[in-house]
């Protein structure tokens, strides 16, 4: 009897140990894959990772080609995406959490938003082609590209907002209402400030996904070879701000990369790898920023 129990305990401990090993291996599979990918890209592209690679336009000579127009394109697209998706997403998230009555209609809205997050990005591209390019005649422009990616990350922003808001205890809301605050005052003084960390995190993760998107931008007609920059948004003459860049054609980093990958000359593969490293670094940087912001806000507000 006694020996039986000891044997049983030994067996259970072995199982426990076995899972620890399995878990460790599973964790490392992801980590090692990412590390290898980065290292491989870096090794392939390192000879092209120079300052002039960042400041040159694409060229038919691989050694002279750079990613300037793609970099600027990616940045401007993100500006439009952020400008559209952030206010819409936050407003929708606040409405659904704080204002919307709980009924079948809001249930349907909620299910749809969850589903939107899972729609393949190329489908958004088709939608944008029909809506922004043909119906609204916005052209194959930075504005169209930015709005397309805004559609793509909108559900992410909405869901991040809702989750951040849901983490605020009911007691805080009641404390605000109990001294005579309106709903909007409660949102303005409490809900928004306390959920900023979570919302920002969601936004940055959304944008870091947007920066790597290729398919929907190809669908709406992004170019693959651009050897000029859009007009500067700031001008020397009155009114100093120009919006002409919004209607300029564009390319973005992943498309530039795709363009180089699809060329037969092996030198361009080096360019593609170098562009890949830059893209990965930008994504990692943005995700790192998201983690940092989350950490900072968690330090300040603990429920």
């Amino acid at each position: 009897m006694n020996g039986g129990i000891k044997k049983r305990i030994r067996f259970m401990k072995a199982m426990n140990y076995g899972f620890a090993v399995l878990g460790l291996v599973s964790t490392f599979v992801g980590l090692i894959l990412l590390g290898t990918l980065l290292l491989d890209l870096f090794m392939d592209g390192r000879e092209r990772l120079t300052y002039s690679f960042l400041t040159s336009f694409p060229s038919r000579f691989a050694e002279e080609a750079g990613i300037l127009s793609a970099l600027v394109g990616s940045f401007l697209i993100l500006v439009v995406t952020a400008a559209a998706a952030i206010p819409l997403g936050i407003a929708a998230g606040i409405y659904l959490e704080e204002y919307a009555p709980k009924n079948w209609f809001t249930d349907i809205v909620e299910i749809n938003i969850a589903n939107l997050a899972g729609v393949p990005s190329i489908v958004y591209g088709l939608l944008a082609l029909g809506l922004f390019v043909y119906a609204l005649k916005l052209g194959q422009s930075i504005l169209t590209g930015g709005l397309t990616l805004a559609l793509l990350i909108l559900p992410m922003v909405i869901m991040a907002t809702r989750e951040a808001i849901r983490a605020i205890p009911t007691a805080i809301r009641e404390g605000s209402y109990a001294v005579g605050a309106t709903k909007w005052q409660t949102v303005q003084y409490h809900i928004l400030p306390y959920s900023t960390g979570g919302i920002l995190t969601g936004i940055i993760i959304g944008l870091s996904r947007a920066i790597g998107e290729t398919a929907p931008l190809i669908t709406i007609g992004s170019l693959t070879f651009i050897a000029f920059l859009p007009e500067s948004p700031i001008s020397g003459e009155f009114p100093f701000i120009s919006l002409k860049w919004l209607s300029a054609p564009f390319t973005v980093l992943p498309i530039q990369m795709f363009n180089w990958v699809s060329r037969p000359q092996p030198e361009f593969q080096i360019n593609a790898a170098a562009a890949g490293v830059i893209l990965m670094l930008m994504t990692l940087l943005m995700n790192g920023l998201a983690i940092y912001i989350r950490y900072q806000f968690r330090k300040k507000i603990k429920w």
Partner: peptide, 19 residues
Amino acid sequence: PIEIRMSISMVFQKPNPFP
């Protein structure tokens, strides 16, 4: 209700200060 709460205040079961 807003007007009522402006003249009748409440203290809750668990302290709920704002952050």
